[in-house]
Amino acid sequence: HADFPGFEESEAPGPDRVEQHSARGEFCRPEVELLSLVRNVVIQGELVRQDSWGKDQIALEIKNNKRRIEEICISCGSLQVITQHPLFEGGLCDPCKDNFLESIFLYDQDGYQSYCTICCGGSKVLMCGNSGCKRCYCCECLDALVNPGAAKIAEAMDHWTCFMCRSARFFGLLRRKRKWQLKLKQFFDQESEHLRIYAPVPINRQNPIRVLSLFSNVTKDLQDIRILDRVPDSNQEMLTFFEDLDNITRQNIEQRGPFDFVIGACPQNPSVDHSSGRIIFQYCRILQYARPNEAEERPFFWMFMDPETLTENDINDASRFLECDPVIIHDISDSVRLWSNIPSLKSKFAANMYNPTWKKRGKNTTEKTYMKMVKQFLVPLKDYFKSYI
């Protein structure tokens, strides 16, 4: 692939000039056909624009006023910095910090980040061509932080690999942090009042996700949305399904586990023997059995789905037992209520993200089809487990 002119890899750039570094596509896989696709970002039905940002002043502040990049918000150019960006060297102002906390884990229906990885905004973004990455970067950030005209050069490339996927860490003023996985966790632990996350796992250390499915077998559904491989290792069962939980004990779960993801779906028509209240109790009981010990820091996720069949008392009980409030995901003809610890479902924007082109379904739809409605909210799992998305 052609190189970016002047983007040769070098030592860390000095504060008085904007260096340029390599943007080669050596990590692009040949089968990737994503090219350097450019799209307008539409969130909540509106085009996201931040034309008033002062990103173009970042390089001038560093060159002319001798400011350190840590003193400047790399998302908008503000000098009112209150914290540091978790992924790249540079500061964040208060509004941009809040925006990052709410938006970094949001993904569109196509599986790509909804917002720029750097600023969590942007009117036009470039999608990484590296299979499995799914990150986006806005043209404004590339031109302001990498080099003027960098976005146009990237657009013209056959395969553009993003700054989180390359071996080099320095790209003009954009400098990826060492151990960014840990720093991202520390950022949320310090700055977020409602969300705690696990440190993302480097790709070379990721394993396939081990799923415990309760009440409904979601193997095919998870394969369809590519959370599970269609051809799993024959020596290892990656999904365990229990429908009747009355006789399931802690020992049963420990023998079949450990599990990384526990998912349960409340049936649309609970039977007398399996009332909605009892289903909630059974799910919470098994969830406690499957949770890792507090001393373990391995990523562990869970989700309980309700196709809006629970009573108000049941909803309150579920929220109390699961220690979080639900999010309702709307569609044209359906909606589903979700309790989960997956980061994307903790965003205040989550309930407004849905697919308006979803085909209208009949009354007899089973709860398993709701997995397609929540596909985009499962994308963050790729940062922890081997992904087929």
Rank of each mutant, 00 (worst) to 15 (best):
F300L: 08
S271K: 15
M303C: 14
I286F: 14
F321Y: 12
Y283V: 01
S271D: 06
N293G: 13
I286C: 02
S319Q: 05
F321A: 01
S319A: 12
Q255E: 11
S333V: 05
I329A: 11
L322W: 04
T311V: 09
H330W: 11
I253W: 14
L287Y: 07
H330I: 10
N316G: 05
R285K: 13
N313Y: 14
E294R: 15
E297M: 11
C266A: 13
G277C: 05
R320Y: 14
L287S: 04
A318G: 08
I286P: 02
R256N: 13
H330R: 10
I280W: 11
A265G: 10
P299F: 02
S335R: 12
V336Y: 07
A265C: 11
D317R: 07
V262Y: 04
E312A: 09
D273L: 09
I315N: 04
W302S: 12
R278E: 02
T309H: 11
I279N: 02
E297H: 14
D331K: 00
M305N: 07
M303P: 05
F300G: 02
S276G: 06
E323A: 13
V262K: 01
W339Y: 13
C284N: 15
Y283I: 00
A265L: 12
G264N: 07
Q288T: 15
A265N: 03
Q268A: 09
P307D: 01
L287C: 05
I329G: 06
P258F: 03
L322S: 03
T311Y: 02
L322R: 00
T311H: 05
G257M: 06
T309R: 07
Q255H: 12
M305V: 03
I328W: 06
R291F: 09
L338Q: 03
F300Q: 07
E297A: 11
S335Q: 12
A265D: 08
I263Q: 10
F261Q: 06
W302V: 01
V272C: 07
E308K: 03
Q268N: 09
D314N: 14
E323G: 04
G257K: 08
H330K: 11
F281P: 00
Q268E: 08
G264R: 00
F300E: 03
V272R: 13
I253H: 14
F261K: 00
M303T: 10
G264D: 13
T311N: 09
H330E: 11
I329R: 01
E254P: 00
P292S: 04
S333D: 12
Y289A: 03
Q288E: 09
E312H: 13
R256D: 07
S335V: 04
D260W: 06
F259C: 02
F301R: 03
L322Q: 05
E294W: 15
F301Q: 09
